[in-house]
Design a binder for these strands. Structure first.
Lengths: 359, 359
DNA sequence: CGTCTTTGCGGAACCGGTTCCGGCTCTCAC
DNA sequence: GTGAGAGCCGGAACCGGTTCCGCAAAGACG
């Protein structure tokens, strides 16, 4: 393994000059730079980042803290972060934190502290006060995507607004009996997301003059989770709503599949709307509120890098844009249930028996 | 930030003794060890891994090279690797390699080389000879999961056997017209996987005396990919097989959804079998050949760590167990198509019009 | 032509640990 | 009583870069 000293010797200069020539910092004449560069190439020299980090204090490495890597939102953010980091010449060290408290503590008290990271990006992770304190104690930029950390930069959609947007879409179609399938504290994520989406949902209902009722079911944020809960809900005709607002597309897709299993037609008999614009949503024709986690990841890197070079530590809270994407999973409710209290009996609107949406 | 020198001073010993006391290596009397340890605790001392790496040459960090992080197989392996690594006190640095050749080169020539990793784990990634050479040049253990690297340790299922197992299941049910939906070179993965699964499929057909025919369709390894290709295939009654063998569960699930969209009943009119046991497979009732990528990741870490401490570099090739999981997506073919060449016309077996499998 | 400034470069300190080597003390055996 | 050996510890070199400081040569200017 060639070291800088070897390069310097071959080029006939000092280590100091060789370092300057290769890093581009400091004054070096073009001719000697050329000599050093070709010497480095000849020896296959690659600077030891370890040695560089030791003296500069910068590691060119950022830590990513996420509760999952396999779920859509998280893996998309991670891919975006990775993309942006490698472009900037940074490495990405992945820390998965789960419920297990001893493992969590290891991550926060041990791994992150070892001066190995220049910044930390957290992905929708619920942090205890101790963990927040540990993160602050690092003295490095921290940016939270999809769920912020008190007093640090964050980057997220307005979850209240997103939920309201989705719900208002259903309301504008005429739905009055809507159930929200969302996450709760048992999920290994920042629970603010769940409570804010629920709050937005209820705000929209209240705005439409719909009195509060039994309208929320805690649901695992996965397709099978949504499937199971929806199967239960939809299987009972008395509880069955005309529309479901799911807190994530995964839940929504599960609900669509449950409807299919039960022979309930979407959107004729049931409308479903989600949040995310998951990669499977288009195939399922799911109406949803789009966010682009991959871009969130890239943006998080920009924020982190910016904070690293900023003189004074300043935090920023960026609200990401959202858009409603209307597909074929939402439509006006069937007439018989539009005004359930008037009991139209089994009046079925003509033409409601159209072939499936693939037609 | 407290340094080792601060700890030593507080404990009234030399740096050398402090280091020995904290690392546990070397002779230190119990009483001084106690003094050093409590001094370290008092100062909140955490050893700089950067400094330690510089002198020892070990980083306690392993690199993971993967073409994707969002796809099921890959993210599961990554989670398994992360789990095992953190348990052993190692960090995980993630490198995503994609098609973009310049980015790939950066990863191999620059990032991995900077003496930052003690070992490398690659996940089903297709490597060029140059890239393999770069990896060998690291002089560190490399283990390939789901697709090996010539001359390095590997860890994978027997893809030929898995494909044969799946195909033979269909054959044993009486299927004679089976199409394979699989990946090809355009996928950003080790193409050996694709060609071996195809080979296993064809071996099984040949073993059953079925002459080679037009039986393979290149398919993106995703649910929407399988959906699209299957929609094409199944939409044409003359091409429609009685069974599909998909190279991955994602493709298989897409095919099941395509069948649903076309009103083709599974398994009565179409059997589908995949490989993986994806997290959605149970919900879809998919018959599949199970592999457990999370365990593969953990095992890869064991292999890598073992190779690191081994005196002589030795490579091992571990074949992982597979099991056929029979669910409700496979059944005997409908009679009318069992012997298509005899042209039974539109003979439909009585009772073939059963309600859906949810019944 | 002398002085002042700029440019280019080398020496050396330094980052924060680990580890080799050697010295001191104490014990034990002969 | 003395020599050997073990246990414990300190000094110092070292890993491989970066950067401060200062010197020398070259160019700018009156």
């Amino acid at each position: 393994m060639a070291s800088l000293a070897d390069v310097a010797r071959l080029a006939g200069v000092s280590k100091a000059t060789a370092s300057r020539a290769l890093s581009g910092a400091g004054e070096v004449s073009p001719s000697t730079r050329e000599r050093v560069v070709s010497a480095a190439a000849e020896l296959g020299f690659v600077a030891s980042s370890t040695a560089a980090s030791l003296v500069t204090g910068r590691t060119r490495n950022v830590g990513v803290v996420s509760p999952f890597v396999s779920r859509w939102y998280f893996s998309e953010v991670i891919e975006g972060v990775e993309e942006a980091l490698i472009r900037e010449g940074y490495d990405l060290t992945l820390f998965r934190v789960q419920e297990d408290p001893s493992r969590r503590q290891r991550v926060f008290d041990y791994f992150l502290v070892r001066k190995r990271v220049d910044a930390v990006i957290t992905i929708a992770v619920a942090l205890s006060p101790d963990e927040v304190a540990a993160l602050r104690a690092l003295g490095r930029p921290v940016v939270g995507v999809g769920g912020g950390i008190p007093g640090m930069s964050s980057l997220q959609i307005d979850d209240v607004a997103a939920a309201r947007l989705a719900t208002e879409h259903l309301l504008s179609l005429g739905h009055r009996h809507i159930v929200h399938l969302g996450g709760d504290q048992t999920e290994q994520m920042d629970f603010h997301i769940h409570s804010q989406r629920l709050a937005g949902f209820r705000q929209a209902l209240a705005g439409a003059g719909i009195p509060p009722h039994d309208d929320f079911l805690a649901t695992p944020l996965t397709i099978p989770g949504g499937f199971q809960v929806a199967l239960d809900l939809l299987g009972d005709p008395r509880r069955r709503p005309t529309a479901i607002f799911a807190a994530s597309d995964e839940i929504a897709i599960g609900a669509i599949m449950a409807a299919g299993r039960l022979g309930i037609r979407v959107p004729q008999e049931l409308s479903v709307v989600g949040i995310d614009d998951h990669e499977l949503s288009e195939m399922h024709g799911l109406t949803t509120v789009r966010q682009v986690p991959r871009e969130q990841g890239e943006l998080a890197v920009s924020l982190a890098l910016e904070a690293m070079s900023a003189p004074a530590p300043e935090t920023r809270d960026v609200a990401l844009p959202i858009t409603l994407v209307v597909r074929s999973s939402t439509a006006a409710p069937p007439e018989r249930t539009t005004l359930p209290r008037e009991s139209h009996g089994h009046v079925v609107r003509a033409g409601a028996d159209l072939p499936d949406r693939d037609a």
